[in-house]
Design a protein around this nucleic acid. Structure first.
Lengths: 200, 200
DNA sequence: ATCGTTATGGACCGTCGGTCAACAACAGAG
DNA sequence: CTCTGTTGTTGACCGACGGTCCATAACGAT
């Protein structure tokens, strides 16, 4: 009798193999560019087996995405004892470092976030938490912020991602310039929203 | 013999009917939410006939999209004799008016632009033309602009759409506030990019 | 009444995400 | 060395998608 019809792997190994493959694929291709059939073919297994390990395409992608997002969130966490302006600068710098180090993944992630509603929700959550952190930092003690402040901060996050995409596309700004542009713009936006921006 | 199996329409009428239907559907649904089968059903014809009139789903959507974009571009065209700062303000005001008047369509368009690469290209073209118009307005005579200026303007256009989306979502800013926020932010961004913004 | 043009629809294709029952590979018991 | 049970694995299938093909039915012209 010749070779066995397929090689059988322990569950853990198979799962690990698939996750590794997912990371490689999803950082080089968009969600929509990949079909489950192709992923299975690439892994040398059947589509049904892929679905045996991950209940849906979303889950499969999410499994690899969560890791990246957690990593990013962890890296942009900074010392809360610092003045809010410095907190922001440090956090932003860490963000730019991450984007710089994972250029391909960042681009693909942003494109996927645009294409897929549920990814946008994930990214938006991170964004909202970030916006709140910023808003907290600039709220005067015992005071309130006008609605324009929320619009300003949330729109500025769009500005930031737009700038990052422009940055990795053209690569003609150094990190310091970009950082200055981002911080200066936030300052301008907050001022225009009628909020006293933090000094620093 | 009873009724004919189908009613035959002159080509022009059929085409007009389908375009009208397209406009109604695509301003209330996202591109991805609509299937050609469903559109055909809604029109009371077969899918094949729909494809007889429009070679693809993209073409069908594009036919209605072009009109909207041209309308928007035309409305934001302003008197070029004015000082650039006033040009910008006027153009921006017209843009906000259009968004305000076509809230639903604007939201669906932006979402579709995110989901569909080729729509994003269309929107990006408009964006680039707009960015260039702005950059021309602020270029000193015989001078050059740093790369940061391009990044600033292009990112600011992201800011603008982010702000518009926030605006139509929350509706707690009046148009004057929003306009001030947008112009103020552009001013801040340009300053941060090392460009002397136009006064006005 | 007939004929040619053409608007039209039913059946079909390949691919997608996802499901299912059945098979085959291996470990352990005898 | 065989039998057996667990379970990792698969081929076949589903409905819906965008898109195509060809026979046919409807109509204007003669």
């Amino acid at each position: 009798m010749p070779q066995p019809a397929y090689t059988r792997l322990p569950t853990d190994e198979r799962r690990a193999q698939l996750l590794e493959l997912a990371e490689r694929l999803f950082t080089t291709h968009t969600y929509g560019e990949l079909s489950m059939a192709r992923i299975a073919r690439e892994a040398g297994i059947s589509k049904a087996l892929l679905y045996h390990y991950f209940p849906s395409k979303q889950d499969f992608f999410r499994a690899t995405l969560q890791g990246a997002i957690e990593d990013l969130v962890a890296r942009t966490q900074v010392d809360e004892a610092l003045p809010s302006a410095q907190q922001l600068a440090a956090s932003l710098e860490a963000y730019l470092d991450w984007v710089d180090a994972h250029t391909g993944a960042y681009g693909k992630l942003m494109r996927t976030a645009m294409e897929e509603e549920w990814v946008r929700v994930l990214v938006d959550e991170v964004r909202n938490r970030t916006a709140e952190r910023i808003l907290e930092g600039i709220t005067p003690p015992g005071g309130e912020l006008p609605p324009a402040a929320r619009t300003a901060v949330r729109s500025w996050l769009w500005f930031m991602d737009g700038a990052c995409l422009d940055w990795i596309e053209h690569r003609d700004l150094d990190r310091q310039e970009l950082l200055g542009l981002l911080l200066g713009t936030l300052l301008g936006a907050l001022t225009a929203a009628g909020v006293q921006p933090p000094t620093g």
